[in-house]
């Protein structure tokens, strides 16, 4: 009973305090809005790195020797121009055939950073990207053998060196995070869609298309794990944009 009495006594006390606070706030006055033409500099720069996943890939799949250099440069606060360059070598040999292939590839495109920066100079990224990929390569089968169990004996042959080009579109989604000053680690997943058909006149498809992946598929899923370094040799001016007025249409 005593405690109830205590509560009853406390309750009326709070409303008394509140008016005192509100009057305090009101007397403080209005906050002056930020000037609309303010701007500041945010770090730009060229980010250069390598794709580490290719080395791990190679350990699992010895016929895929790939080397990829990635680079991107900030164009606007959230838009980046992205480039990838690479060389691949495709040696393979088993009881059926030997295969030799090598080639260069390049992809060109943009990355868009979706991550809302918590401070203007934040450089962590969660991005989506679009790329166009092109590859020029050659492949050959120096020798193949075909075994005939019923007739006995085997057939041997070879395919001459063939030059080929491939074009594809790449959709990218990934992260890049600044782990040390100017040093970034990142990963991304990507879907590549082949635009042309790579085949010899005899219907022979390459084992791999440099930069694309499997030579027998129209679309492939892949991932990258990159370590890269930013050379921050320029800055980008970011302007303050006042939030769009929402009250006006309601009026």
């Amino acid at each position: 009973m005593l405690s109830f009495a205590a509560l009853a006594q406390n309750k009326p006390a709070t409303p008394v305090a509140k008016p005192a606070d509100t009057t305090h706030v009101i007397t403080k006055g209005k906050i002056t809005p930020e000037p609309k033409d303010s701007s500041w500099l945010i770090p730009g720069g060229l980010r250069v790195g390598v794709d580490l996943s290719r080395f791990i890939n190679n350990a699992y799949y010895p016929y895929r020797q790939e080397y990829t250099v990635v680079a991107d440069a900030r164009i606007t606060p959230s838009l980046f121009a992205a480039v990838e360059l690479g060389y691949t070598n495709t040696p393979h040999s088993d009881s059926n055939y030997t295969y030799k292939g090598n080639g260069m590839f390049a992809t060109l495109g943009i990355d868009y950073n979706f991550l809302k920066r918590q401070y203007p100079s934040e450089r962590n990224m969660f991005f989506g990207g679009l790329r166009y990929g092109f590859s020029h390569f050659n492949f050959e089968v120096p020798s193949y053998t075909q075994h005939s169990s019923y007739w006995g004996g085997q057939v041997a042959g070879s395919y001459p060196k063939t030059n080929a080009n491939a074009h594809w579109i790449e959709l990218v989604l990934g992260l890049k995070t600044e782990v040390l000053k100017n040093l970034f680690l990142g990963w991304n997943v990507r879907e590549r869609i082949l635009l042309n058909t790579v085949k010899t006149n005899d219907g022979f498809t390459p084992l791999t298309i440099p930069g694309f992946g499997s030579g027998s598929k129209r679309a492939v899923f892949d991932m990258q794990y990159t370590i890269s370094y930013v050379i921050p040799f320029y800055k980008i001016r970011e302007h303050y944009h006042p939030p769009a007025p929402k009250k006006q249409p309601k009026k």
Partner: peptide, 21 residues
Amino acid sequence: IYKLLIAGAFLLGMAACENET
């Protein structure tokens, strides 16, 4: 969160491939 995602992606990438030969 970044660290976890980075580690996860690593495993995902390995599972996605197949040795066609």
